[in-house]
Computed example of a mutant assay.
Amino acid sequence: MPSVSAVPPSAPSSRDSVVAALRAAGCVFAEDEAEMILATARTPAGVAAMVERRVAGLPLELVVGWAEFRGLRIAVAPGVFVPRRRTEFLVEQALRQAPGAAVVVDLCCGSGAVGAALAAALGRVELHAADIDPAAVRCARGNVSAVGGQVHQGDLFDALPGALRGRVGILAANVPYVPSDEIGLLPQEARDHEPLVALDGGTDGLDVLRRVAADAPHWLAPGGCVLVETSRHQAPTAVEVLERNGLTARLTVSEELNAHVVTGVRP
């Protein structure tokens, strides 16, 4: 997290000056952040304003209004969970498990990045995304409609059209999985700028996962899969939760991305 400091009187607009301002504020990836700012701002004044907001501690994605996710430019907005690069691994696992999926659901969709990425990779697909947070739904609509999908507001499966029951080939559920008493340990950017509902997974972090696992078999098509992201220490319990609900479960890990994805397949 950059520390708060004033923007120099000579507003930065060249790449070198932007990098210098960001580096002085403590941005570890100053060069990459400078490229994103310069690629987004339309005027020198716009560059200066973005640098000022970033130096003040606003997450880069909210400064520029988008996040890169699996080669897509995903629009993000204040109060909406910013998609993480490690979640690209969940998309890869979904495509590997169900490369011919015709119906995709992005549950707890946030910005809709996962659903948009799956639809972009699969081509013609029926895509539905859902979230309980109105801010997330508003944000996701632009990203999901761009690939021909629909967004619904509501609590998990309650938000979905009943006609999807038994038809879903890929159910991507990037549920909140941070234990309640560990929220305070998150980076300040997450604590200050992302909604608690997208982070807090209850006492052990798996409360929402348990609810998804209980209903997923009723919505999946035969051979369909549900995929969730967890932490390393939660993963064995997450596998057990899916198996107790009649799914064939496995854990896949990317050490490079520090990503742990549990996949459950309906027999």
Rank of each mutant, 00 (worst) to 15 (best):
V18I: 10
V18K: 03
V18T: 02
V18P: 09
V19G: 07
A20R: 13
A20Q: 10
A20P: 02
A21C: 10
A21Q: 06
L22M: 13
L22I: 08
L22E: 09
R23S: 15
R23T: 11
A24C: 06
A24E: 15
A24P: 09
A24V: 05
A25D: 02
A25T: 03
G26V: 05
G26M: 02
C27W: 14
C27N: 10
V28H: 13
V28T: 14
F29Y: 14
A30M: 05
A30L: 06
A30N: 05
A30P: 07
A30S: 15
E31S: 14
E31Y: 08
E31W: 07
E31C: 04
E33Y: 06
E33D: 15
A34T: 05
E35A: 15
M36C: 12
M36N: 11
I37H: 11
I37M: 15
L38T: 06
L38H: 05
A39H: 11
A39T: 10
A39E: 15
A39G: 14
T40K: 13
A41C: 12
R42P: 03
R42Y: 02
T43G: 09
T43K: 11
P44G: 11
A45H: 13
A45E: 15
A45C: 09
A45T: 12
V47M: 10
V47L: 10
V47Q: 09
V47F: 11
A48W: 02
A48M: 03
A49E: 15
A49T: 08
M50G: 03
V51G: 05
V51C: 11
V51K: 04
V51H: 08
E52Q: 12
E52D: 13
R53L: 11
R53I: 03
R53Q: 14
R53V: 02
R54S: 08
V55Y: 07
V55P: 02
V55G: 03
V55T: 10
A56V: 03
G57W: 08
G57H: 09
L58K: 13
L58T: 13
L58S: 07
L58P: 03
P59M: 00
L60V: 00
L60I: 04
E61I: 00
E61G: 06
L62E: 12
V63Y: 01
V63M: 07
V64M: 00
G65I: 05
G65S: 04
G65R: 05
G65P: 03
G65Q: 04
G65N: 04
W66E: 06
W66I: 01
W66Q: 07
W66P: 00
A67Q: 14
E68A: 12
E68P: 02
E68M: 07
F69D: 01
F69T: 04
F69V: 01
F69C: 01
R70I: 01
R70C: 03
G71F: 12
G71N: 11
L72R: 15
L72G: 01
L72M: 09
R73P: 05
R73S: 14
R73D: 08
I74P: 06
A75Q: 13
A75T: 12
A77G: 08
P78K: 02
P78G: 10
G79F: 00
G79N: 00
G79Y: 01
V82C: 13
V82Q: 03
P83S: 12
P83W: 11
R84V: 04
R84P: 04
R84W: 01
R85M: 09
R86C: 13
R86S: 14
T87I: 06
E88K: 03
E88D: 06
E88M: 04
